[in-house]
Design a binder for these strands. Structure first.
Length: 435
RNA sequence: GUGGCUGUAGCUCAGUUGGUUAGAGCGUCGGGUUGUGGUCCCGAAGGCCGUGGGUUCAAGUCCCAUCAGCCACCCCA
């Protein structure tokens, strides 16, 4: 007879179990995200994890959605997708209450998102993403505010300016550079922009030959390839060639970099090669790069997308927003030694000496009413073993409760960090923990 | 979806050219006498060698398949 196949103890592919220490880290990250967003006046919202397929088809290609999402039919045959991103959802929500919401609207959310693909470094099938959006502001003040918020977020995790770099570009500027300055037609421009997106993944010669393949003979002969290469080497806005220097978006970007610099944000720079896909961004785009050599990648990305709310049949609402995944953030914190040492939520581990569990309940209950988190050892083991259990769990304080303490009303509070003991009444203990 | 690398104890890994009962460190649990942890000493538990098939007198070791993990590509919302 064959043995039964054992059940797998592994979590689903590309998804994670969160044991208490993992969950503590997640709570830490979420708390920082919430704290900083709320300090800028952003309000938290949420939505269902399931959306109808159509909501994604409107802005992304059908094939991509069908191949890279969790797509299935519900019992009534509706096509349902587990949300792979939050932007369509939040656009839907804003569109639904387009008239009654008051702008500017500052919203954030921390949804879990799913995508169907092979997991790799920095990318799992399920992740949590901070989504921040500012609706209803047409001018660059919106970009400025959102980028300031991004910077404040990084600083809240203890990041130093040399650990990350904020890169800015403008889709309008790039579009005009390709169509106007380089005189490319639509097809050429699309192909070239895709290549620019992959620029850093190939060497110069390979890039040039790929560009030559995309360009029509007429463009090649006109020396467009050389012109393009020169453009991509531009590092500063004022180095932009010809009419691009006077482009309104260039002026706006320059202005914003100045404003950011005045505000003490000096690790931001213009990057003409920054593309961020090619679909729904309408003007400014930005990304935050990890400067650590082992993780030289984009961690966070966003920009202006003024057209999405309008897809729901209402008047469009200008929007600037970004998304930041927990996986890339965790990699960042690890590589830069910014991982916090997080103790458990328990303040006190109560060791009960002798057969006095019943009598110990009252003083312990009063501690809890006073806001102190108390776990009670119910094992009846020797005190030493109970203290060891507290130490192993990482709880700093042990409360020893025995005949002596119950008689005197003064409980023994031991600090495992210092090894010192104090005899305190429950109210004194509560006072101590309130500090 | 494509390709590469890797699967031995909870974790990190040893395991000779295939050759008896599978090894270490860390961790876990117990003990070192009855109200005090971390260090130290002693001991124990814990392995279908990822899974299935094949070659062989003999497989952790060789071959095939499969699953899983990692990395890269594709894609990136």
């Amino acid at each position: 007879m064959k043995a039964k196949m054992a059940l797998s103890k592994q979590p689903y592919k590309g998804a994670r179990d969160f044991y208490p220490p993992d969950k503590r880290l997640q709570k830490y990250i979420f708390a920082k995200w919430r704290e900083v967003c709320e300090s800028f006046g952003y309000e938290e919202y949420d939505a269902p994890i399931l959306e109808p397929l159509e909501i994604y088809l409107a802005k992304t290609g059908e094939e991509i959605v069908k191949e890279q999402t969790y797509l299935f039919q519900d019992r009534s045959g509706r096509e349902v997708v587990i949300r792979p991103e939050m932007t369509p959802t939040v656009s839907r929500m804003v569109a639904a209450k387009r008239q009654e919401l008051s702008y500017p609207l500052r919203w954030y959310s921390i949804p879990n998102l799913w995508r169907y693909e092979r997991p790799q470094r920095g990318r799992l099938r399920e992740h949590w993403q901070l989504n921040v959006d500012l609706f209803g502001v047409e001018g660059m003040e919106a970009e400025y505010e959102v980028i300031s918020l991004v910077d404040a977020l990084f600083k809240s995790f203890g990041a130093k300016p040399d650990m990350y770099e904020i890169r800015l570009n403008s889709r309008k500027l790039v579009d005009d550079a390709l169509a106007g300055y380089l005189s490319l037609d639509g097809k050429e421009a699309h192909g070239v922009s895709k290549l620019i997106d992959k620029l850093h993944k190939m060497d110069r010669a390979k890039f040039v030959s790929a560009v030559d393949k995309v360009l029509k003979p007429k463009s090649r002969e006109a020396g467009i390839t050389e012109k393009l290469l020169a453009l991509l080497d531009v590092r500063k806005i004022k180095e932009l060639p010809g009419e691009l220097k006077d482009h309104p978006s260039a002026a706006e970007l320059a202005q914003m970099l100045n404003t950011l610099s005045d505000a003490g944000i000096k690790n931001a720079r213009f990057d003409v090669t920054l593309m961020r896909g090619f679909d729904y961004y309408t003007d400014v785009v930005f990304e935050v790069f990890d400067t650590h050599p082992d993780n030289n990648r984009s961690m966070l990305g966003g920009g202006r997308f003024d057209g999405l709310v309008g897809l729901f049949g209402v008047q469009p609402v200008p929007t600037v927003g970004f998304g930041w995944g927990d996986v890339t953030l965790t990699n960042f914190l690890e590589l830069h030694s910014l991982m916090p040492d997080l103790p458990p939520e328990t303040d006190i581990y109560a060791a009960v000496v002798g057969d006095v569990v019943d009598q110990a309940r009252k003083p312990i209950a009063s501690l809890r009413r006073g806001g102190v988190n108390v776990a009670v050892d119910l094992s009846g083991r020797k005190v030493g073993d109970q203290i060891r259990a507290a130490d192993k769990k990482g709880v700093r304080y042990v409360l020893v409760v025995g005949e002596e303490e119950l008689k005197s009303g003064k409980l023994t509070l031991k600090d495992l960090d210092t090894g010192k003991e104090q005899k305190l009444s429950p109210s004194e203990i509560i006072k101590k923990f309130k500090e």
